[in-house]
Structure formats: structure tokens, C-alpha cells
Write a protein that binds this DNA or RNA. Sequence first.
DNA 1: GAAGGCATGTAAGCTGTTACATGATTCT
DNA 2: AGAATCATGTAACAGCTTACATGCCTTC
Lengths: 183, 183
Amino acid sequence: MDAKTLCLAVLSRGDASGYEIRKQVGEGPFQHFQKASYGSIYPALGKLHEQGMVAVREEEQDGRPDKKVYSLTATGRQHLLAMLAQPAGEDTYRSDFLTQLFFCHMLPPEIAAARIDSRIQEYRDCLQHMDQKCACAAPGPRFVHGFGQAVYSAALTYLETNRDRLLSELSSSPAAHEGDAER
Amino acid sequence: MDAKTLCLAVLSRGDASGYEIRKQVGEGPFQHFQKASYGSIYPALGKLHEQGMVAVREEEQDGRPDKKVYSLTATGRQHLLAMLAQPAGEDTYRSDFLTQLFFCHMLPPEIAAARIDSRIQEYRDCLQHMDQKCACAAPGPRFVHGFGQAVYSAALTYLETNRDRLLSELSSSPAAHEGDAER
DNA sequence: GAAGGCATGTAAGCTGTTACATGATTCT
DNA sequence: AGAATCATGTAACAGCTTACATGCCTTC
């Protein structure tokens, strides 16, 4: 999903400035399955405006810089609908964490342990954070939220229950890393 | 993780041609957490060769085009080790599927149902496929494989148990899509 | 006083994808 | 006959990230 469609999607939940859109994508409800930076959002909003998909109004604020608040037009809403109804592309998952663990026989076991431990902590924090802001009313967001929780919980549990087994396997195996690492 | 490092990682498991590397990344053991296309692998191998990270030998085959088989050099192995020991970047997950479901109140419920059902089937196929080729001997690959299974199973179970609830919620709610969709 | 949040934008550069180009062989 | 697999590579293009540029206000 490109930056333009993402902006339309976010705007369908209510008017927002570019800054606010980034916050919703980076820290808000979309955080776990979409990303976008300023460098992609501002140009996207510009193009959407040219194409008549969004309207802008400038809002003055005291003590703060002015805001450009964008809102969906009818055209924009139609376009979003068309995009949402289209079959979605495949999910993308990339993990350097798993890649490192895949090759953990080349690594000192302490490093592998440290990687797993910090990942466990990250998942814990993430789940706790999700619990707090679970005031999702609408069915869609609630469903997606639950999905995220289910997946993160499973990942956390797996790491917790298999950490020690992996480490003991590593310490009792050839330890390929030593020969190479200290040459 | 960039294409170059990925190539080094794959080569550490044994010599391979560009074609074979792509197959391992796209269909083999890395399939679920890394991706790479020919357009990124071949140039990456060229650069790695320039930098002395890999060695090449050409192998003639009868009935098949010749192969360029790459193998790690000592420098390449050292470099890989350094990359693996470095703290990994965050995992990336992007899902247009979840984005669509987040906004499912804008969609006809049949479409939402169809999306979930085909995703359920995909997860089932994927898990079955993983079961078959679970002949992972080494601790690292086995750990990573188990992680994937745990996560996919959790996702599947969630979809199976929450599908109907979502759909009944959708059919009993305002049905925002109707007004817009048929104008 | 420094750091961080609010706020908008541009531009260079990196990276990767898609499509193209080529060609033999084997399977259906 | 046509499709798929093996095999390598290039080039155009698209897209996103990072860093830069600016500036005020609030909190620590």
C-alpha cells in the first residue's frame, strides 16, 4: 500500500495534518502493520490535493506553527473504497532478528542470548502498551487489534519457552564461531 | 539486511549460484523472513566479488546453461560474522490485509469474509508446507522454524475463532459502505 | 540551558522491483 | 506445441529513507 492510499485511509477516520497522519501511522493504531515517514507523507498529500482527493484548510494556532488540515473529498473516499475492495497484496515480513538466530552457531552464545532477551522484553512492552490503549470501539480496529495481540503473545511465549533449550544446544555443539572469531 | 549481506549469509551454508541463492531466499528456509529478487542478487554478487568477499568458479553443465558458483572467502566470512554480531534492526511487518480489515465497515461484508477465508487457507497451506520440510538439524534453523510455526498457528487460530464474530458485528452495524458504494 | 514536541517541507541518494533480453531443455 | 525450469544479467523506474532547513514553545 503506497503512501497516498495510506493517507486516504487515515483521513477517512477524521481530518488531520501531515504531522498527525505520521503520528497515527508511526505510533497510533496502524503502527504494527504500516509505516510512513514525513518524506513520503507530505509529497503524497500534495499529489492527493492536485488530484482532488483531499481538501485543505489552514488552521492558525497560538503558540504553535500553523497547520494544514486535510480532509477527504467524495472523490477521495470513492478512490479509497476502490483500493480497499481490491485484493490485497501479500504481507511483508522481514526480520534480521530471525536471520541472526538462524546463524547463531556462528555467534558467541552470549550474544544470541542477549538478542533473545531483549526481544522478549520488547514483546512484553509492546503487549502491555497494546493492552492500555484497547479502547477500540469499532469491529474492524478491534479485530485487527486482537490479531496483533494473538501474534505477539505467541511470539513471546515461544521465545520464553525455547530460549534455554536453544542456548543449551549451542553450548554443547561444535561452537563454530570460536575458530573464526578469534583469528 | 541488504542483498549483499543476505548473499553472504546464504553462501555460508554452502556454495551456490545466483539462481540458487534466489531460490533459497524465495522458496527455501529464508522464505518467511527475507526476500530478494534477481535484480538485487546478481548486482550484489558482482560487488561482493569486486570486494573479495566471494570467489567464483564457472561450472559447465550439459543440457543446462553454465553456472557461476560463488563461495565465501575468509574476508567474506569475517564480514558476515561482523554483521551477524551487530544489533539487528527492527523487524518490518506490512499488511494490506490488516489495513483492509481495519476499514471493513466501508466494505461489503462478503468481501471482508472472502478476504479472511482466503487468508485462513493460505495459513493452512503454509503450515502444512512447513511441517513437511521440518528436517532441520541445526539448532538455529530449528528455533527459527519453530518460531514461524508458532506465529502462523496463532494467526490462523485467531482468524478461525474470530471470523464469525466480526461478520455478525458487521451485519448488525450501520453498514457505512452501502450509501457510498452504490452512488 | 537543553531536549523534545509541534509543524512543514525539499532533495539527494539508496535500494529494490519490474520488465526486458536470451536461450536450451524437459515436462505435460 | 506450450509451459516451466535452469541460468545470467541490465536498465528504467518507483519508492522510500535520511538528512537538511527552519522556528517557536514547553518541559525538565
